[in-house]
Every structure is written in structure tokens, then in C-alpha cells.
Design a binder for these strands. Structure first.
Lengths: 124, 124
DNA sequence: TGTCTATGTTGACGATTGTCGAATCAAATG
DNA sequence: CATTTGATTCGACAATCGTCAACATAGACA
């Protein structure tokens, strides 16, 4: 019960910054390690339900959305929670509890980093 | 045995053009069908080996590469072929046999389409 | 305290995926 | 032809993934 707010817990979920990760896929062959890190990001968006959840949060007014606002994607509530966790672990979303509800918002830096991976021009 | 080359077979591999597919993820919530199609593209790049193969082809001089040039990614040759097929089916790569070797090249339109999905500005 | 609502976690299940060895196909060359 | 080399297909296997029902947790409120 005593919710001691002492320890910062140095990253409870290993958001593993993906932003300054890897060069555009067209620049040079990815190394094994780079490919591993990059695949982790794409994997997070390689599911229809996660894409809908992510898109719902990303396009929501104010840049954030409560779970209750976006959980209408045709799967059970535990499944929604499971997918949101995966998006969090991939560093694509962050969550914050405010009172009754939990709000999710996108990390623009990570989104931009992924966009750069697929860019054809060299406008890094 | 009689390899009759009569039927064009109208798309042997369903390249399913992904280019004019879906709006940026931040624009509006994706529909179920849009999410399904988009996920298919991300899934193609959601594997380290496929990422390395794709990156190797995309960055190769001349825009195309023979399988023999890129198959040094730490897995067996059948596995390489398997992943290249997946990339082909996703519409990300095209292949062409010229004599002894098979050459792969990227489809820039598809790559650009994926980039747009992750764009934050509205410069469609 | 107790109850209600909103999310998250656990455990289990079937489905999909990545991998390889063996067999097969395709082109070149002897 | 037969052989060699490059590439794909087939068949099987372990590992991962998406899903749900059941349970647990966190606030709000009476």
C-alpha cells in the first residue's frame, strides 16, 4: 500500500530509444545488430490490431487518448491491453494514469525515426 | 512436363499494389481493412534477416543485386530464398532471372508509400 | 470499509513463423 | 547427355504470436 515514490526505477520497461538507431534502408546494408533493432520497431506495427490502436492514439484530438476511447477494435479487452503493452515496449507509445483512466500518447521522435528508415532521399 | 507458356496467369504472385494504400497513421484511425493491408507491409520488414536482405538490395550499386551478392546473412540458402519470396509477395522486391543468376531490385513506389504512412507532416 | 468501473496480468490454447535438410528446378558447360 | 553451380520448393520441427477467460490491481465513491 505505502506507495513509496522514492526509487526512479531507472526505466521500468526498457523503452530502448529507437530514435537515433539506424540509417535509411537504402543507404547501406544493415548490420545484424541494426537489423535486430529495426525489426523490433517494425514488428510492433506488423499487426492489424496494433496498427489500429496506434493510429487511433496518433490521430486523436490532443495527441493522447484514453484506452476507453480506442478499445473498439474487435478484440477482447485483455487483448487490447496486451497490444498496448507491446506498443509501449517498442517505445512507440507512452502511458500515464490520471485518475480512473489511462492515457496513451505517441512518441513523435520514434515515429520520425521510422519514417527516416524508409526515406529515399538523403534529407536526414 | 510440357511447360505450356500459354496462360499469362494474371499475376503469379499477387504483388497487391501497396502504394496507393493508406493514409498516414497520424491522420485518422485506420479501418480494419486498411490496417490489414498496412500490417502486411510492415510484417514483411519485421524480421532481421529480411531487413538485411532488403537493405542490401536497396543500397546495392545499380539498384539491383544478385542473390549471390546478398545471401551472406547468417542463415542457410533455402532460408534466404524463403525470405526473398516473402519480400516479393509483399511487393517490396521484384526478381528477374538473367542467365545463371537471379537479380532483385526494390520498388521505390512501395518504399515511398510506407514512408508516407509514418510521416508526421501532411506533405502527401 | 465495500463496491463498482477501468486496466493490467496470467495461463492456456491454436495458428503462424523462421529455420533447416533434402529434393527439385534452371542455366551453363564439359 | 552428365555435371556443376545457383536458386527455389518441400516437409518437418521448435519457437513465437494473437487470442481469450479468469483473475488481479487501481481509483472513485458511497
Amino acid at each position: 500500500m505505502s506507495n513509496t515514490e522514492v526509487l526512479p526505477l531507472l526505466e521500468p520497461e526498457a523503452p530502448q530509444a529507437v530514435a537515433p538507431c539506424c540509417p535509411p534502408l537504402t543507404e547501406r546494408p544493415l548490420s545484424a545488430e541494426e537489423a535486430e533493432r529495426t525489426a523490433r520497431m517494425f514488428k510492433a506495427l506488423a499487426d492489424p490490431v496494433r496498427l489500429r490502436l496506434f493510429s487511433a492514439v496518433a490521430s486523436y484530438a490532443g495527441g493522447e487518448a484514453c484506452v476507453c476511447d480506442i478499445s473498439d477494435v474487435g478484440v477482447s479487452q485483455p487483448t487490447v491491453s496486451h497490444h498496448l503493452k507491446k506498443l509501449r515496449e517498442a517505445g512507440l507509445l507512452t502511458s500515464e494514469r490520471r485518475g480512473t483512466w489511462v492515457y496513451y500518447r505517441v512518441d513523435p521522435a520514434v515515429l520520425a525515426a521510422m519514417g527516416r528508415l524508409l526515406s529515399t532521399d538523403s534529407a536526414a
